[in-house]
Design a binder for these strands. Structure first.
Ligand SMILES: [Zn+2]
Ligand SMILES: [Zn+2]
Ligand SMILES: [Zn+2]
Ligand SMILES: [Zn+2]
Lengths: 152, 152
DNA sequence: TTGCCGATGTTATGTTATTACGATACACCC
DNA sequence: GGGTGTATCGTAATAACATAACATCGGCAA
C-alpha cells in the first residue's frame, strides 16, 4: 500500500476512497459502458468481491458527477468531462449500438425546449434522461454522406 | 370462458392474442407504470404464471406501438395514443416521482434538435429515450393540495 | 477513554429479464 | 388424410441487475 498523505483539504474535488478510485479507473479504461457486474469481474483481482462494493462506489462517483448511469443499458460510463461542477443540467448520450461507444453532450437548446414543455405543463422538472441509439461515425460506414443509405 | 374463433377481423389493427389483450388491459387500468412482475401478479388470476408470458406479450404490444417501456423505471405503460401509426419518431415521457403518473408527449422541436446533433456528428440516429423526472402539476402544488396517491 | 460517524466487508435476498425445450394450433400444400 | 412451416404458448431453469441487513473497522471530537 504505497499511499501517503492523501488527506490534504481540497474538499473542492472530494477525495476518493480506494474502492471508488478503482471503479473510476476501470470505467476510464473501458471504451464502452460497463455494468456493475462487469466492473465487479474486472476488479476481482483488486480484492472486490461483492456487488454492493461496486454499487456504493458508483453511487458516490455519480453524486460527484464523475460517472453516469445509462438507463437504457443498465450500465455506467465515466463522465467525459471528468465531472461537471457547473449546471449538470441536461446531459445526453449517443450510444452506438454497434461498437458500444458513447458520446456525452449537452445541448442548451434541447434543455430549454424541455424546460419550456415542463413550464407549460406545470411540471417541476428535476432531472432528464436522454439516450440516443444509432450508429456512430466510425460504424455507420466508411464515408456515408447524409443521404439515403445506398444498398451495399 | 369465451374462446374459439376470435379471428374474424382483418389486420389493420393487428389482432391481439389473449395474453396480449390481458396485459394491455392491465396497463390501461393502471394509473402508473407497471413492471413485468407487477403485471404478472395482477394476471395470476387469469392464469398467467411465468414472466415469459408477460414479456412476450409486452414485446408484441411495443412492436405495435400500443405500449412503451420506461427505461428509467424498468416498467411499462400503455401508449397514451393507443398506438402511433405515424412516425413513432421521438416520444418523451414526463414521470412524476411522487404519484407515478406519466405524461407522454412528442415535441417536434426536440426531435429536430436531436436530429441536428446527430447530423452534425455523423451519428445515424435510430431511436431515442427521453424521460423527464419531476413533480406533476397535481403533486407540485404550492397552492394545490398534494394529490393523495390512492393505494393501488 | 468513550462515543459517534462514515466507509467497509459479508451474507443473504429481492427484482428484472432471458434461454432452452417441448407442446399446441392453425395455414398451406401434396 | 398426412406432411411441413410458422406462430403462439406453457413451463422450468437460470442469468443479470440491485438492495437489505448486520457486523466491523478507523478516525476524530467531547
Ligand atoms: Zn458528464
Ligand atoms: Zn460505433
Ligand atoms: Zn405512445
Ligand atoms: Zn404527481
Amino acid at each position: 500500500m504505497a499511499h501517503s498523505h492523501e488527506h490534504h483539504h481540497h474538499a473542492l474535488r472530494p477525495e476518493l476512497t480506494r474502492n471508488q478510485a478503482l471503479v473510476l479507473a476501470a470505467l476510464n479504461e473501458a471504451d464502452s459502458p460497463l455494468s456493475a457486474y462487469d466492473l465487479l469481474n474486472r476488479l476481482k483481482a483488486e480484492g472486490l468481491k461483492a456487488p454492493l462494493q461496486i454499487y456504493r462506489a458508483l453511487d458516490k462517483l455519480m453524486a460527484d458527477g464523475l460517472a453516469h448511469r445509462l438507463e437504457s443499458l443498465n450500465a455506467f460510463v465515466c463522465c467525459a468531462k471528468q465531472g461537471h461542477e457547473d449546471s449538470s443540467g441536461t446531459i445526453a448520450f449517443a450510444i452506438c449500438t454497434d461498437c458500444g461507444r458513447v458520446d456525452e453532450f449537452a445541448d442548451p437548446q434541447i434543455r430549454s425546449r424541455l424546460e419550456a414543455w415542463a413550464e407549460s405543463h406545470d411540471f417541476a422538472l428535476k432531472q432528464a434522461t436522454l439516450e440516443l441509439r444509432g450508429l456512430c461515425a466510425r460504424c455507420r460506414g466508411p464515408k456515408a454522406p447524409p443521404a439515403a443509405p445506398t444498398a451495399p
